[in-house]
C-alpha cells in the first residue's frame, strides 16, 4: 500500500475509512449485477475502478450515491449508514429528504456531464450552494467564480452548456460538484464521451483535485491516469472485485487471468491516446 507513485506520496492518506462498502449486492429484474462488493476507501485516497463493460462499475457508483437502492450489504460514508436507520438491528428506510441530505456530501460526475442546459455555467455551479445549502447569492457567486477559475473556465461563466465543448462542459460539471464541498467525489468514466484531444484537460483537473487531497472513486479506462494518480486500483468483473492493490502491482503484474485479459485489450487503445492525455491543463488556451 505504500509504494504508490510520486504524486500519491505527497498526500496524507488517513487510516479512517471514509467509504466502507460491505457485501453490496444489487440485481435488476433478477439479473445480479453486483454480487457482494467489499470496498474501503480511506480519507484522501484515490481509487480507480477498472473492469470490462457490464461488470457493474456504474451500478456500484450509483449505489454509493443512492441513485440505486441496494438489495444486500451496507454502505457507510463517514460513519453514516446510507439509506437506512439502524434501530437495534432492524433497518428502517430513510425518508427521501434524509437521503437527499446524505447525498450533499458526495459529488458525482457523470459520463454525459448532465449539466443543466437552461442555466449558464456560473448558474450551474451556484445552483447547489444556493438551492440546497441555502447559501447567499453573492457568496455563492464568488465561490463559483473561484471554482470556474480553478478548472480554467472563468471567461466562460456566462456561456450555456450548449455553447461549450465537451471537455469544458465536463470541467463545469466537476466545478458544480465541488461547489457543494463534498467529502467524496465519484467519477463515472468522466472522459469517455470526449474527443481524444479534450480528455487531457479534464484529467488535469482531476489530477489537481487528487493532489489537493480529495477522496475520489474514479471509474476510468485511462490507464496512465490510474497509474500516476491512483493510490489503489480495483479490478471488477461480473459483479465481484477480482483484485485490488497499488496501480504498479495490479496494472503491471496482474495476478488473475481475467485482469490480464482485460488489460491487454485496453493496452492498444491506450497507446493510441497517450499524447492527448499528457496535455497540460493551462498550457494551451481554452
Amino acid at each position: 500500500m505504500t509504494d504508490t507513485t510520486t504524486t500519491a506520496d505527497t498526500r496524507a492518506v488517513s487510516d479512517v475509512p471514509l467509504v466502507r462498502a460491505l457485501n453490496v449486492s444489487k440485481a435488476f429484474y433478477g439479473n445480479e449485477v453486483l454480487k457482494g462488493i467489499d470496498l474501503d476507501v480511506r480519507e484522501g485516497e484515490v481509487v480507480c475502478l477498472l473492469g470490462p463493460s457490464g461488470s457493474g462499475k456504474t451500478t456500484f457508483l450509483r449505489c454509493i450515491n443512492q441513485l440505486e437502492t441496494i438489495d444486500g450489504g451496507r454502505i457507510w460514508i463517514d460513519g453514516d449508514l446510507m439509506g437506512y436507520d439502524d434501530r437495534n438491528g432492524q433497518l428502517h428506510r430513510l425518508h427521501d429528504k434524509r437521503i437527499a441530505a446524505q447525498r450533499r456530501d458526495i459529488g458525482m460526475v457523470f459520463q454525459r456531464f448532465n449539466l443543466f442546459p437552461h442555466m449558464t455555467a456560473l448558474q450551474n455551479v451556484m445552483e447547489g450552494p444556493v438551492q440546497v445549502k441555502g447559501q447567499g447569492k453573492g457568496e455563492s457567486r464568488a465561490a463559483a467564480l473561484e471554482l470556474l477559475e480553478r478548472v480554467g473556465l472563468q471567461e466562460h461563466c456566462a456561456h450555456f452548456p450548449a455553447q461549450l465543448s465537451g471537455g469544458q462542459q465536463q470541467r463545469v460539471a466537476i466545478a458544480r460538484a465541488l461547489a457543494m464541498k463534498p467529502k467524496l467525489m465519484l467519477f463515472d468514466e468522466p472522459t469517455s464521451a470526449l474527443d481524444p484531444e479534450l480528455v487531457g484537460e479534464v484529467l488535469a483537473v482531476m489530477r489537481e483535485l487528487a493532489q489537493d487531497g480529495m477522496t475520489m472513486i474514479v471509474v476510468t479506462h485511462e490507464m496512465s491516469f490510474a497509474r500516476q494518480v491512483a493510490d489503489r486500483v480495483v479490478f471488477m468483473d461480473a459483479g465481484v472485485v477480482v483484485e485490488s492493490g497499488p496501480p504498479a502491482e495490479v496494472i503491471n503484474r496482474p495476478q488473475h487471468e481475467r485482469t490480464r485479459a482485460f488489460l491487454s485489450r485496453l493496452h492498444a487503445e491506450e497507446e493510441h491516446r497517450r499524447e492527448a492525455i499528457e496535455d497540460p491543463l493551462h498550457g494551451n488556451d481554452h
Binding site: 443543466f116 447547489g128 438551492q131
Partner: peptide, 27 residues
C-alpha cells in the same frame, strides 16, 4: 426531460420537489 437531469439534481442533494421546480419543469 432527460433522466440524467433529475439524477444530476439528486446528486447535488436536491429534494424531489426542488429538482422538479428548478431543473425539470423549466426544461
Amino acid at each position: 426531460v432527460d433522466r440524467g437531469q433529475s439524477e444530476a439534481a439528486q446528486a447535488l442533494g436536491m429534494s424531489n420537489g426542488k429538482a422538479m421546480r428548478r431543473v425539470i419543469l423549466p426544461q
